[in-house]
Nucleic acid binder design. Sequence first.
DNA 1: TGCCAGGCCCTCTTTAGGGCCTT
Length: 208
Amino acid sequence: MPTSAANTLVVLDFETTGLSPNQGDRAIEIGAVLIEDGVITQRFSELMNPGFRISRFIEDYTGISNQMLRDAAPCNEVMARFADFIADHNLVAHNAAFDQRFLDAEFAQIRHRYLGQFGCSLLVARRLYQAAPNHQLGTLVRYKQLPTDGTFHRALADAEMTGHLWLAMLADLQQEFGVNAPTFELLQKIAKKTKADVPKFLRQYAGK
DNA sequence: TGCCAGGCCCTCTTTAGGGCCTT
C-alpha cells in the first residue's frame, strides 16, 4: 500500500557542483515544494556545503558562491532534514534522471531510502507540448506563461516553476484532452509513450 | 595511457550517431 496521499507530491530541484555524482560531484542546494490537491502548501530550501570549493562556472551559473557555502550546513545534515520533508511522497523533477542520481547519491551517504516514485516533467512536456521551441524549463515557463519571479538556476525557484509546469500539464489534460481528474500515474504512462502515440492514447483514456 | 555523465529520442536506425536536457 502506498503511504503517500494520492494527490500529494514533492517537486524538487538540486543545484550541484557538476553533472555527475559518479565523478565526485555533490549537491550544493536543494529546493522543493509540497503540492497537495493542486496547491503548493510547503517549501524547502537549503544551501549545503559539499566540502570542497565549487568551480567558477558553477558560481556564475547558479549565483551560489563559495562564500555563501562556507557557512552552510554539510550535505549530510541538510539531506537528513530533506528526507523528513519528502517522506514517502511521489517526486517530480525537470529531467528527473539528473535529480534522481543526486538524490540517490546523497541519500546513500546517510543510508536513507525513500519509497516515492519519480515523475519527469521534461518527458511529459516533450509529449504534450510538441510545438514548444524547446523543452528547457525556462522556455516552458515562458511558453505556458507560468508564474515566475525571474529567478532561474536556483533550487527553490526552479522547483516552484517545475511545480507550476506539472500543474499546467494536469490542467491541460483536463481541458484540452477531456481527461477527468488526471493523476500522477497517468503522467507516468504518458512519459512512456512515443510522441506519435500520445494523442491516440489520450483519446482512448478520455473515452472519446 | 587516455578517457571522463547518463538517459531519452529521433533518424539518412537497429552492426549508429548525434541532439537535447539537467549542473
